[in-house]
Structures are given as C-alpha cells and as structure tokens.
Design a protein around this nucleic acid. Structure first.
Lengths: 241, 241
DNA sequence: CAGTGGTCTAGACCACGCT
DNA sequence: GCGTGGTCTAGACCACTGC
C-alpha cells in the first residue's frame, strides 16, 4: 500500500527547467544559451545530463546546436526555418516564398469551439485575421487565423501587411510568442462562394482544407487557422515513419 | 592540398552495420536483437557507443526498446503499429480498422515515371493492386498500389484478400519486406468517373489524393501508391514541429 | 589558441520484466 | 535474483569556429 512515487529522470527535470526559462523569455529566439558546462554547474548536474536534456529539445526543434559555436534558441526568423511550417511546394518540388495580402483583422468574442481549442474562458476575445497567399503571382491559399486576444493586444492589419517574412517570425519579435508544434487536420472540400471569390476560381473547385492548431513552449495553444489551398500546381508534403 | 578525410563517428558505422544485418534478414521483424553488451563485444566498442547507434534506429522507428526485456525489430504486425502508416481518422478523432476489398492484381511493365521512382530498369515489371477500403461499412478509399515485380513474385489477389490485418504486415511475413519510411504528396482533386463508381459518389466530388512512395531498410524504394479518400466524415492527421 | 559542441569510454547504480 | 535497458557521472580526446 505504499505510495507509488513516479520516477523522473534528472535530465527530464533539467529539460523542464530549460523550457520554463524559455517561456519566461530568459533567452530570445535566435540567441545563444549558456554552454553545457555552465548549465551543468548552475543546475548541479554533470555535463552529460544537461546534454541529454538539450538533445531532446533539439529533437523537438526548440533548440539548435552549432558545433564550435554553441546552442541557440530556434527562431522562425532564420532563413532555414522559412518552410518549417509551410509544407506547400510546387509540383516540381520547389518551395516558394509566398506574397501575403491581409484582407482584414478584427477582434471578436471567441465562439465556443474556438475558446475550447485555445483554452479560453467564455467571453474571452480572439483576433481574427483573414488573408490570401499568392504563390508565383497566383492566389493559392485563403485563410482565417485566430489568435488569443490576451497575447496579441496590439496586432493590426498595418503591422501584418508591412512585415516581410513569415508571420511566426513577426509573432516572435512583436509578441514574444514562439511556435513550437502544430497539429493539422486535412480534408478535400468544394470551394464555397466566398472561397471561390477570393481565390478567383469556380464554386465547387476542390480545395485542400487544413485546420491547424499551434502551440508555444509548454504545449500552450496560441493559434488556430483554417487554410484552403488550390492544389492544381502545388501539393502538400508529408513524411511518414 | 591534403586529401579531405570525411569523419565518420563510430556509432554511425555501427548503425550502418545494424541496418545491413536487418537488410540481410539476420533478425526478423518483431524478434529480439542481441543485448547492448553483446553487440558491444561483437563490434569491439563500448556499450555506450552501441547505445547511441540504437538510439537513432529507435528514433527512425526501425527498432523498439522495451525496458527490462530487450531491443526488438519494429514490425507492422504489432497491434500498436496498425495506424503507423494509416493517418485517416474519423472527425471524432478515432482511428478505425478498415475492411479491404481487392479489386484486382496484375503484372505490368513499369511505365517510365514509375520505373524511375522504384529504381527499376526499362522493361522491369511491377505488380499493380487495385483495392477499396471500407471504414464503418462505407467505401472511403480507392487506391492503386505498385510494387517492385522482382520482390513480390508470388503475390496474388487470393493471398491479399485472405490476409487479415495491415498489408505491410503481410509484406513482412511473406516477402521479407519491412517498410520503414514513406514520402507523401497530398492534393484535393475532383472524382473521375472511375473513382466515382468505386466510391459510390458523384463525379466531381472533392477527394483527398495521396501519392505515397515507401522505402525499406537502407532507403530502398519498394512501393508507390495512389490513394483517394472521401473526407466527408474522416480527415488526415498531420503533425508539424 | 581557447571555447564550444561531438564522440567514446568505463563504471556505478536504478527501474523494469520475468522466472 | 538475474538480465535487460535507462540514468548519471567523470574524464579524455576530437572536430569545428572565431579571435
């Protein structure tokens, strides 16, 4: 009848401490963190234990190692991260940088389902963004993006439209929100009147519908988005293992 | 002007040796491999080095560890692997075991593109399988599957139809082919006359089209398949990080 | 050349599964 | 209790980067 004590490896505890430090903004995206030996000294464990904690965070894409230089906080502002959350490529296989057109930004009360998905209370607000993405000059993706109102207080259409680069990079700079992970649900749907209008296609054209829920450090749900892609000359990439 | 010698860590070399042993059929899917200490003794390295090699193979889903028991070769015949390569779930979020109906099996000369994707020579043959998958009694997925003719000599419709369970489990048992990894291209398309007939839907209905290329040990391309899913009550799951 | 991450080793001990 | 994988440590040396 003894109490069952859950066994927690030391390196897991170190990992949690590192995530908390990241969450608290102790190290900004793109910046270097202390060396393995420094962290080991701070936490009172061996370098190998810190190493294992960092190994997992690197596997999760939270940190990046550069041999001879140090360990860095992953950032969506880095060139190599540009297509990390953008899996649409041309049928020739090349990833392309889209042009973004913001259609509108507004603050609304979160509907029930959305509130639940973002862990919001009833009557909490969300920011709704509508935009169209152009690839090679063609409107390819029409999407709605919903963000926690409390964490994006000063987000405006002007800010979004003026920013060059991935939206997630803007979120890092202006709102200290770092996207770490996302879950997607993918379907084929027929274009509605609104979708057809925005994408300049016929009503009923098959579209790739992607619902995404994105998380920041510590599995904190921050964003929901609904994208609809024309996949006539582009496709979504996916890897199974 | 000295020759640049590429540095290869020991554990990477051990990893290659383990993959070669798996490729050679030294350990069957689902079976146990020698302990870390035994392998270390065989290869003349420390247990920690073998461990790191196994770590990577576990991350690749090639091997599985079970604490207190040993390290095992991953198999598609295990219950927990049933949905490893089947990412379709109901909109309620539950994974369902499909019923498979084989429509036909035939041997054909590989068309150019297919030959290239499977690293075949001109005039090499492939086995083409057509089937429909039923979820909850409804036809949901119509697919064509092409396999290397040289590795699936005795594959028949009867064998496929009589086998209960994932097709990849059958491949392991009967043909010693273990699927390790796959790449997919996902699009939304309008149902053709043939697709509409097989799935009992109207021509033009949006379908989720998935082209998959699957690889066995050592990046050996073995299979190409084209699936078309009705995503009215089901969706594809995807995780980004 | 100094500092960082990367590899390799050897040994001790813990958690787990089975017998 | 034994054998397995899992954790933790300490130390040595290598590869890479930048001063």
């Amino acid at each position: 009848m003894t109490e069952r004590v859950v066994f927690r490896p030391l390196y897991q505890q170190i990992k949690v401490l590192l995530i908390q430090a990241l969450k608290a903004g102790q190290w900004a995206p793109g910046s270097i963190i202390p060396s393995e030996f420094e962290l080991a000294a701070q936490y009172g464990v061996s370098q190998g234990t810190v190493r294992k904690a960092i190994d997992e965070l690197v596997a999760d894409n939270v940190l990046m190692r550069r041999q001879g230089k140090g360990t860095f906080v992953s950032s969506h502002a880095e060139p190599r991260a540009e297509f990390r959350f953008l899996r649409l490529v041309s049928d020739a296989g090349e990833a392309m940088t889209p042009e973004n057109h913001i259609l509108g930004v507004q603050r609304i009360l979160a509907p029930d389902l959305l509130a639940q998905q973002l862990s919001l209370k009833p009557n909490d607000s969300v920011v709704e963004i509508q935009r169209v993405q152009f690839f090679a000059g063609q409107p390819i993706n029409f999407e709605h993006i919903w963000l926690r109102g409390d964490q994006f207080k000063k987000l405006t259409a002007d800010l979004l439209q003026s920013y060059q680069g991935p939206m997630y990079a803007l979120f890092e700079r202006q709102f200290a929100i770092v996207m770490v992970r996302a879950e997607e649900e993918i379907r084929a749907v027929a274009a509605s009147a609104d979708e057809a209008l925005q994408l300049k296609i016929a009503v009923g054209t098959p579209l790739l519908s992607v619902y995404r829920r994105s998380f920041s450090y510590g599995e904190h749900a921050v964003e929901v988005r609904h994208s609809r892609f024309i996949t006539h000359h582009f496709h979504y990439q996916h890897e199974l293992n």
